[in-house]
């Protein structure tokens, strides 16, 4: 299994932000994206996750392999922790939320409504969702926001387990996770021409 990104350029809205990004990730490898705010880390991750098309270049990855976690956790406040995780497990056709709960030490919060969780607990629940997807390629956007040191370590351990099992992780983060990960600084890939794309409504054609 491989994730190959070849010479990709992508846009945020109508603004071309990065271009010429290439890398290859094989099973068991992780890549950390770095770069200043606004460079296009989120845009690149969303493009690879398939939420928006690339302007140029190719992204090659196996079908139905990607699990994406963005800035928002996608939790439903009125539902409990267990209901939130069970929902995602059934969407992805996997069973058992225990390992996800244990990965983030959330067993005690099982019946708590998601809206009563703290910001860090919500984030933990959002990340625990990755475990129940059963997908080999994880795309994580700023996963450690609002996590304390102990939970950042739990997160690093979860990613390490995922990599050991032959998974791939691609994340944008500024925190040193202590993982054996390649680092890609996006600063040199900043798009030179900041002019808007001429065909704004290309998607409608």
């Amino acid at each position: 299994m491989e994730l190959v990104v070849k010479n990709v350029a992508c846009a945020r809205g109508s603004l071309r932000v990065i271009e010429g990004v290439s890398f290859t990730l094989r099973a068991g490898e992780a890549l950390v994206l770095r770069g200043p705010n606004g460079i296009g880390k989120t845009t690149l991750l969303r493009t690879i996750a398939g939420l928006q098309p690339a302007l140029e270049g190719q992204i090659e990855l196996p079908e139905d392999a990607v699990a994406y976690a963005g800035h928002a956790d996608g939790l439903k406040g009125p539902l409990s922790v267990a209901q939130n995780l069970t929902f995602w497990a059934s969407i992805y056709g996997t069973r058992g939320i225990e390992c996800a709960l244990e990965a983030f030490d959330m067993t005690a919060l099982l019946d708590r409504q998601a809206q009563d969780l703290s910001a860090g607990q919500k984030r933990r629940l959002g990340l625990a969702r990755m475990e129940v997807t059963g997908r080999p390629i994880w795309i994580l956007d700023e996963p450690t926001v609002s996590l304390d040191a102990a939970n950042t370590a739990l997160f690093a351990a979860m990613v390490a387990r995922h990599l050991d099992a032959g998974g791939i992780a691609l994340m944008a983060t500024h925190i040193e996770l202590g993982l054996e990960a390649k680092v890609l600084d996006l600063t040199p890939f900043k798009a030179r021409d900041d002019a808007p794309e001429p065909f704004l409504d290309g998607g409608f054609l």
Partner: peptide, 12 residues
């Protein structure tokens, strides 16, 4: 708003 639409779109 809560981000689950992004997650649903990338789901199977």
């Amino acid at each position: 708003e809560d981000g689950s639409l992004d997650l649903l779109v990338t789901s199977p």
